[in-house]
Design a protein around this nucleic acid. Structure first.
Lengths: 214, 214
DNA sequence: GTCTGTGAAGGTATTCACAGCC
DNA sequence: GGCTGTGAATACCTTCACAGAC
């Protein structure tokens, strides 16, 4: 049915955009909107209309010329393709400020993502509970059975690599890293890194060189 | 002197990498390393050796064949090009968990970035102080003089656009957005968005389709 | 006239490959 | 032998442009 999709693997950039579209669509549907044009969807998603059309085309989802795309059907399709209906377990390593913020952020806002464990090495924290999630000792991390979960690493840079090694041993295949350091992992493990300070340095540089771009 | 650099504008991806290199180099220098090869620097920075060479080539910084790059000199050059020696003021809007986490994260770890203000609409929070930074009311945001500062938006999605409008009025040119929503800004304002949940959804998708890549 | 469908084109980032130097 | 220097090649992502449908 969706040959185009199966033939071509979705790029991470595309996946991220689909997710954005899904949120925009939810809002539109809430507002009672039944259709949306590529121009509108582009504006609300901070991308271009051409890219929206191209994305939906890749998805194999057709709109109606002169009208636009059906919001309800489109959302359904995106949810199906991204697997957003399924609940995914997430563990967070590092119960410092950042780790806790991420954990609470995810427990409230993110449908389909469920924090099931928090790990920390600080004995003072282990055993306490945050937002209904117990903090466990990071000592025995490698011994946990963490297949099929997503792991968030929010430790200091120096601790990140050992933690990641243990996570991999425990069966983790997907890691979101907030520690400002490169991580070595086997080729079947995916790491995405978010560098908070780095983002600001980029902005800082662009501002200095004020980048006349558009 | 550095014709190559001035001729070609650095892309944001390159800037981010340079920043990563700088951190890696600091660590290496601390460890007493005087030279580093592109292969090593690539591993420590989670990129490829070819890309490291290409980056440093773009920078106009030469190494020694058979030996590598001089860590000290290279760091100096990167710091100079990125302007890392200068202190940049940062304001954070939204003193919820995420905003506070970011603020504290930046006050401790990030050299050259200085949080000068926190804003929130919650009257209960306004007036209190966090890590030496007073929380101010977000009501009068548009009236502040925020030229030349970087702004971090860590509000709920619904509040983000109004906040951004006010920041722009206040003179902000560079915004790091954590609210999961697209933002409309004048073309001379730069917005970079970090979507925490979005990153996890991407990982989730990749894991499901376990992406045989590499 | 509005808006999608879709291939072609453009631009950019990254990798290859290998010559040249230490 | 190890490693950089560097253009060529590749892959990827995004935009253009315009024909076709409502």
């Amino acid at each position: 049915m969706n040959e185009r999709l199966s033939r071509r693997r979705l790029s991470t950039a595309t996946i991220a955009r689909f997710h954005t579209y899904s949120r925009v669509l939810e809002r539109l549907i809430n507002d009672g909107r039944r259709t949306v044009s590529s121009v509108q969807l582009g504006q609300l998603s901070a991308t271009s209309a051409a890219l929206v059309r191209s994305d939906l085309f890749t998805l194999g989802f057709g709109g109606t010329r002169g009208v636009g795309y059906e919001t309800g059907k489109l959302l359904e399709r995106i949810v199906e393709v991204l697997g957003l209906e399924r609940v995914r377990e997430v563990v967070v390593v590092g119960a410092g400020r950042l780790g806790l913020a991420i954990a609470s952020y995810l427990t409230q806002g993110a449908r389909g993502l469920k924090i099931t464990a928090l790990f920390d090495i600080d004995p003072a924290k282990v055993g306490t509970e945050v937002a209904g999630v117990a903090i466990r000792s990071a000592e025995r991390l490698a011994g946990e059975a963490l297949t099929d979960v997503l792991a968030v690493v929010a430790t200091p840079a120096a601790a990140a690599q050992p933690v990641v090694d243990q996570l991999v041993t425990a069966g983790v295949r997907s890691i979101l890293n907030f520690a400002p350091t490169g991580l070595a992992v086997p080729s079947d493990v995916t790491v995405r890194s978010v560098d908070l300070a780095g983002e600001l340095y980029v902005l800082s540089f662009l501002q200095d060189h004020h980048d006349g771009a558009a």
